[in-house]
């Protein structure tokens, strides 16, 4: 018919490049990975020396739960993360706001943060032990330090991203400075701060293993370390799975908090 009428449809060239959400996809991805892994283990393609099978990992987790150690490990780690993250975040928010608002704090703070941020916190462990002992304090401090710097950077960039026009507006209505910080800058910086929270919560989990290297009887990190030292790879992977679950949970909670706090977007 195209030849008959001399008409051809205009080809469609749009579409694509618009990743959307598929609800089933994450579950399918996990299922596929685990199924493939179990298949490789069962067929001997993946020898137990190299990697335990998912079934063994589940057994190890079940064993851990049955012995009651699971709650001890998770409880100890959660409390360290909660304390360390909260302290690091509060301090980071304070310093980040100061750097976002005052020229002196910014000029002094940026080079100091740039110098201290890249230091691997694990390298400071011996010092932390000398200063703080081997009980909970150095473990919390390790996490708090790891969380502090990204929070500072995230916060002051978030403050920078608050439109200046809003601050000028507030000044034009004679809002006092504390009110400008509280009513304009803090909510305006909230998207950036929450993005930083996503990063720092992951950092807290990553540092958990380092934090629990020294003198920890319980904790997911110390459990993973011990399993590694004992070459109990099924328990090692079980511990890693616990960390992943913790990470997913925290990410889910943060997503909810974001949806609630940023409903205006």
């Amino acid at each position: 018919m195209a030849e008959e009428t001399g008409q051809t449809p205009v080809p469609f060239r749009g579409g694509g490049f618009q990743p959307g959400a598929r609800r089933w996809a994450p579950w399918a991805a996990f299922a596929a990975i685990i199924a493939g892994w179990q298949l490789a283990s069962s067929t001997g393609l993946l020898p137990p020396l190299i990697m335990p099978s998912p079934y063994e990992v589940v057994l190890a987790l079940g064993h851990l739960a049955a012995s009651g150690d699971l709650t001890e490990h998770v409880g100890a780690s959660l409390s360290r993360i909660a304390w360390g993250w909260s302290i690091g975040t509060l301090a980071g928010l304070g310093v980040g706001f100061a750097m976002g608002i005052w020229s002196l704090a910014r000029s002094a703070g940026i080079p100091v943060v740039a110098a201290l941020f890249p230091i691997p916190k694990i390298a400071l462990l011996p010092l932390l032990i000398l200063w703080l002992g081997i009980d909970e304090a150095p473990k919390i401090a390790t996490i708090a330090l790891g969380v502090f710097f990204p929070t500072v950077i995230g916060t002051y960039s978030a403050v920078d991203n608050v439109p200046r026009s809003l601050i000028r507006m507030a000044q034009s209505f004679n809002l006092p400075n504390p009110a400008i910080v509280w009513k304009v800058i803090l909510p305006g910086a909230m998207p950036g701060i929450l993005a930083a929270f996503r990063i720092t919560s992951s950092i807290a989990l990553i540092l958990l293993v380092a934090a629990e290297m020294i003198g920890a009887e319980f904790g997911i990190g110390s459990f993973i370390l011990a399993a590694g030292n004992l070459m109990q790879t099924d328990q090692l992977v079980a511990g890693v799975v616990l960390l992943s679950i913790l990470g997913l949970t925290i990410s889910f909670v943060l997503g909810r908090v974001e949806a609630w706090l940023l409903n205006w977007r």
Partner: peptide
């Protein structure tokens, strides 16, 4: 006895020197 994993010999030495274990 309370066993404290310290990961390395230098850490153990530091801990016993400072009386933390």
């Amino acid at each position: 006895v309370t066993l404290k994993p310290m990961q390395s010999v230098p850490n153990m030495i530091a801990a016993v020197k400072s009386g933390q274990v």
